[in-house]
Write a protein that binds this DNA or RNA. Structure first.
Lengths: 225, 225
DNA sequence: CATTGTGAAGTACTTCACAGCA
DNA sequence: TGCTGTGAAGTACTTCACAATG
């Protein structure tokens, strides 16, 4: 398939074709009227804009189950990320091989970051160690941190932190599940995985069972026993 | 701290206080004018509305590094999720203890789902097995699926699927990192285009927390071929 | 002549600002 | 008096619809 139309892409992505065209237009005019977009060229342009064509060395700190899972995760390499080092504070881990790499001790964190020109760090340590690791990474020159530890990190200005809470996605599913159970079936699933919120209930009424305000009883709450 | 004002909460969360109050108002009127919100009561109401006060039995399928990490993840239990069973297709895994639970064989998937009244399933299998596992979960009665496998699942209407791509967060960091690095240092191939930065470079960078879903926090997920 | 690129129109979300109440 | 709850105003995002065009 050498070319693709905005209509086709939009259908595949589950969005409006005009939106897709408008989004693409921010990258420039890469389409051909009457024809569509050249697939290969489009992929390259988007990849470049998103930074996927660059090589991003990253360090992973905290090689427990999650760290090991991430180190083995195939998706990183294909998006331009190269795991430059695996770091763990446990001496027993040092030298062990994970995902084909030898785990290094946390003592060498600064040296590793510096020598590899790392600007992105991934923290998969226990919550208690996360802030300290974060501080050391930042001091060593890391300016973007992906935090899997269940704690909020504070960082100086200029440093980006993104926190991944693995239970949030579950919570979102549970929220929809709760609604399915409480009301009649509503929206169907969407391939893109975007949780649709629907028009939302506009009924603004207290819903508590132990309401302390309003005299009126309550509504719905959509909460099965 | 028995009560808290919308101003305080908003500052802590890095959002506008009016927005916070308006959001809360959809749950009902739980505040007290001149005082603020009763913390304990507010927490309860929000928890209930989000479904956190319910017990959600879940099954985890695919107990590799990621599955084990998720099984060990402390965040689930505290949000009302109870891992009812760990399931793996590898006979060598059957009976092994992970996170204090005995791994069960995939042959018993249907029975496990049924007996535990599970409606939420987590898939952490390799990509190749995901769709098959998904189909079996759905057939067994699961109506919400959290997919960590790097593949798109198709499900019948009425089933929710959310896909977690662990590399997307890294891509977002890399995207910002690329911008920090310098706007001018790009290969001149297509510098013209459009002023991508836009006229209103409204920087919302509280940095205090993390700004997921912030104004510029999200980047379209693009799947390179 | 099918399809892009884009002003204009439409819709959703956010913030302002203040009446009203504890 | 201090702070909530909310209509109104403002801003951002999405979709329409069509002239431009390879």
């Amino acid at each position: 398939m050498p070319t693709v139309s905005s209509e086709e892409l939009a259908a595949a992505a589950g969005v409006n074709s005009a939106k897709l065209r408008k989004d693409f237009s921010y990258l420039g005019s890469y389409g051909t009227r009457g024809v569509g977009y050249d697939v290969e060229y489009l992929v390259y342009q988007i990849s470049r804009e998103l930074g996927l064509t660059q090589d991003w060395p990253i360090v992973m700190v905290g090689i427990g189950n999650l760290g090991a899972a991430l180190a083995n995760y195939g998706g990183f390499a294909s998006r331009g990320f190269r795991v430059a080092a695996l770091i763990d504070a446990d001496p027993a881990m040092t030298g062990k091989s994970v995902a084909g790499m030898s785990v290094q001790h946390a003592d060498d964190l600064e040296k590793i970051v510096d020598e590899n020109g790392v600007s992105i760090g991934v923290i998969a340590t226990p919550a208690g160690a996360a802030q300290q690791v974060c501080d050391r990474l930042v001091a060593a020159g890391v300016t973007s941190i992906l935090n899997f530890a269940p704690t909020v990190l504070s960082v100086p200005d200029g440093v980006d932190v993104r926190k991944v809470d693995l239970s949030i996605e579950l919570q979102i599913l549970a929220f929809h599940e709760q609604r399915k159970a409480g009301e009649g079936a509503v929206d169907g699933a969407e391939g893109a995985g975007v949780g649709v919120e629907g028009p939302a209930a506009k009924v603004t009424r207290p819903t508590a069972g132990d309401d302390r305000k309003g005299p009126d009883g309550d509504v719905p709450a959509v909460m099965p026993a």
